[in-house]
Computed example of a mutant assay.
Amino acid sequence: MFRTTLALVATAVPAMADEINVYSYRQPELIAPLTEAFTAETGIDVNVAFLNEGMVERLQAEGDRSPADVVLTVDIARLNELVEAGVTQPLSSQTLTDSVPAALHGPDGQWWGVTTRARIVYASKDRVADGEVTTYEDLADPKWKGRICTRSGTHDYNVALVSAMLHHHGEEYTRTWLEGVKANLARKPEGNDRAQVKAIWAGECDISLGNTYYMGAMLADPEQVPWAESVRIVFPTFENGGTHVNISGVALTKAAPNKDNAVKFIEFLASSKAQEIYAEVNNEYPVGPGTEASELVRSWGEFTPDDTDLVDLAKLRPDAIKLIEQVDYDG
């Protein structure tokens, strides 16, 4: 049985043999199909505490008495933050090693990627020609003045993209690039990725940054279908690289009172069954070998992922945030 709770409390109660406790930054509707499938297959109940923020602080405060066995989150920086805070533990598993490419898990098994998503451009079908957007660097070109919409520059997804720009081009170039993108904004950054597509549909801007899976989410919502149908997905690249990708991932907590069951759950997330659920329900790119993206996702086109080490991007996060704030991107 799938259980959702907002207040798992650290206690000295012995671990139960038929359950695990998960702290998740991922939305309930995105992981419910996965936890329900796991319980159906194993009989192990999954209790999930959905958090908006403060996962590291909560785990640190709970310490060895934490009830959490597993953490689920998006963005490599958040995974790396958990590792550096010392609230996770290494997990060695041949099942995971066989299922998750080396580039998508920590070298010591402290975190494991379970899906990927691309940071792409949504472009107006009516006002942006095919081939007009090619690179991330191009977004700072004055030809886009008054034509770009984005969510906050300090949101994790955009911070990761700026971190990648830093990796490819260094601080001076990235600052100039950020200033150029800011100068091209049609409005002050606001809302989520879907709100930017809505703004394109409304004629407020012509292009926006967003994650690929939001297209699937919009097409599943009758109110948002017109937004989705007003744009096409473009896969920009870095001038000396590929298309920026990030991950959703999982880690075993340091306390893990139900460790054996937790390991089973993490291995399940990398299994063919779970990867197919991710692909069909969440419109994300599966990491498991032999598991294809859904037909809808494949219809958006192919791309070559940038090969920058994800941990390197996570380490550049503080520098990226500093630059975003220096140029007052959200101002």
Score class of each variant (00 low, 15 high):
G113H: 08
G180M: 05
Y278P: 00
D69S: 06
Q275D: 11
N21F: 09
N21L: 06
C205T: 07
A68C: 06
P107Y: 08
A228I: 10
N158Q: 09
N158Y: 08
Y214R: 10
Y23V: 14
W300R: 10
Y285V: 14
L51F: 12
C205L: 03
R117M: 12
H244I: 01
L6N: 14
R26W: 14
M55E: 07
G109D: 13
L104S: 08
I207A: 09
V197Y: 01
T176Q: 14
N47T: 03
S24V: 13
G86L: 06
T11P: 10
V225G: 00
A228W: 00
K264A: 11
V121N: 07
G216D: 09
F238S: 03
T39E: 15
T174P: 01
I120G: 10
F235N: 04
D221A: 05
I321H: 08
A183W: 03
T174Y: 01
A255Q: 02
G242L: 06
E179L: 09
V281P: 00
L79H: 04
G288Q: 15
L178S: 02
S294H: 13
V181F: 07
F50L: 07
D307W: 07
V70C: 05
N282T: 14
E171D: 09
D138Q: 15
A270Y: 01
V70M: 03
I148L: 08
I266W: 00
A12V: 15
K259P: 01
D75E: 02
P101I: 13
E276I: 10
T243C: 09
E62N: 07
G216I: 07
V162L: 02
E29C: 07
L296C: 08
S208A: 15
K259N: 01
A274T: 06
A199D: 11
A220M: 06
Y157S: 13
F50W: 09
V225Y: 00
T42N: 06
T88K: 02
D75L: 06
E81P: 00
L166E: 03
R78Q: 09
S24Q: 12
P305E: 12
H167Q: 07
R232A: 08
